[in-house]
Each structure stands twice: as C-alpha cells, then as structure tokens.
C-alpha cells in the first residue's frame, strides 16, 4: 500500500461521496457524473490492490495484519460495484445517495487500511 496514493484515493472518495449524497437528496437520478465518481473510486481501488500485492516485493511490508487488510480491501472493492449495479437497475434519487454512501464507506475502509499498513505496530 502506497501512502500518498491512499491519500489521493481519500481525496476523491470523500468529496465524490459527499457530492453523490447531496445530489441524491436534491432528487437527482444517477448520472454520468455520480456513476463516474463511484467508477473512479473503484478504479483506484483496483490500482491499490495491484500496489498492495506488489509493494512487499519492493520492501514495503505491512506493519499490521495482512488478513485484516485484505478483508477490508476486498470488501471495499465490492461496494461501488454493488452500488453501481443498484443505480443501473433502479434509476431513483436514492440510488444516487447509495452511490455516495458506498464512496464514503470506501473512504472509511481506506483510512483503516492505511492504519493497518502504515501505522499499526510501527
């Protein structure tokens, strides 16, 4: 896990999530913008997964439990996908809010993942 990249992810997931929640509460159905925000969060998570697999080879080992780290990462990767499908099936304002909730949940999980990798035990 690369720390600056994690902060970049948080910098996208938090505003993106807030934006989706606000637009949803205003009554907007899922749009390219809100779907795109969730898709971007998802894409960055996939990159993070690749980075997490590769990082130990470059001497960047997790300080905490890898099991816990990957449980978070795999769960996080699932969230925007589920929310995205939901948004495609049900084109209502609440689907937009749910996209936002998924992005914010991913942000919380990224924060925990960062703690596990970089803070715990060091």
């Amino acid at each position: 896990m690369i720390e600056w990249f994690t902060w970049l992810q948080l910098g996208i997931a938090v505003p993106g999530g807030v934006l989706c929640v606000i637009l949803g509460l205003l009554g907007r159905k899922p749009t390219d913008l809100t779907m795109g925000a969730a898709a971007l969060v998802e894409l960055l998570l996939i990159v993070q997964l690749a980075a997490a697999i590769a990082a130990p080879l470059a001497g960047n080992d997790a300080t905490g439990s890898l099991l816990e780290f990957y449980t978070y990462l795999v769960s996080a990767i699932a969230l925007p996908v589920v929310a995205g499908f939901w948004a495609l099936v049900e084109r209502s304002r609440w689907s937009t809010v749910i996209l936002g909730v998924s992005c914010l949940s991913v942000a919380v999980m990224l924060y925990r993942m960062n703690q596990i990798w970089n803070v715990q035990g060091s």
Partner: peptide
C-alpha cells in the same frame, strides 16, 4: 423511497 437507503446502509454494516 428512503427505505432503500436504510437497506443499503444495513447491507454495508452487515458486510
């Protein structure tokens, strides 16, 4: 309606 959001949040908590 908002019940969908409730279900979604329950789903996240279950996860």
């Amino acid at each position: 309606g908002v019940g969908r959001l409730l279900i979604a949040v329950y789903g996240v908590l279950a996860l």
